[in-house]
């Protein structure tokens, strides 16, 4: 049972996602009770994820926005702050005092932060230590591996046909 503030809030968030989406993001509800969204993020420019399309599963807890949304990459991504199963290490996705989620953030701004994290990894708070040290010490190898992973997993075939 969702709380009384959940539905009005989600209604407005849907409007934001539909009318004024963060650049490079498509986000839509997957189920009818607005607890699950699918976000498709275009890899940020000038990053090894460029040209890729990354699917992110967004789960909205019943106490949202008193609790942060849960986000997880579905598309595999080679990134120091994302683990093998797609869990993301981002402070705004955690409750205080360990994290910095606030109800002034929303799905749209959180996705924007996720894009910024993709473009600018945070090796000082890593989830995968090996990738983080590679990012710090051997940047060219990191970029190559991240690019290879993008080419391998994130290049969704576009539907195309002759006119």
């Amino acid at each position: 049972m969702s709380s009384s503030y959940f539905l009005p809030r989600m209604k407005r968030e849907l409007e934001i996602l539909e009318h004024d989406p963060p650049p490079g993001v498509v986000c839509y509800p997957v189920d009818s009770n607005l607890t699950r969204f699918c976000a498709q993020i275009k890899g940020p420019k000038d990053s090894p994820y460029e040209d890729g399309m990354f699917k992110v599963d967004v789960q909205i807890p019943a106490r949202y926005p008193m609790e942060p949304p849960r986000m997880q990459f579905i598309t595999p991504i080679y990134h120091p702050n994302v683990d093998d199963v797609g869990r993301i290490c981002l402070d705004i996705l955690k409750m205080p005092p360990n994290g910095s989620w606030k109800p002034s953030l929303n799905i749209s701004t959180t996705l924007t932060s996720l894009i910024i994290l993709m473009a600018d990894p945070n090796p000082d708070d890593p989830l995968l230590v090996e990738i983080a040290s590679e990012f710090k010490e051997n940047r060219s190898l990191f970029l190559q591996k991240a690019k290879d992973a993008t080419l391998k997993y994130a290049m969704e075939e576009k539907d195309s046909s002759a006119q």
Binding site: C38, D159, S160, S161, A162, Q163
Partner: peptide, 13 residues
């Protein structure tokens, strides 16, 4: 312009 045209659909399956 009159040949190939790529499209992609987004939304709930």
């Amino acid at each position: 312009p009159k040949g190939e045209c790529q499209y992609r659909l987004f939304g709930t399956e």
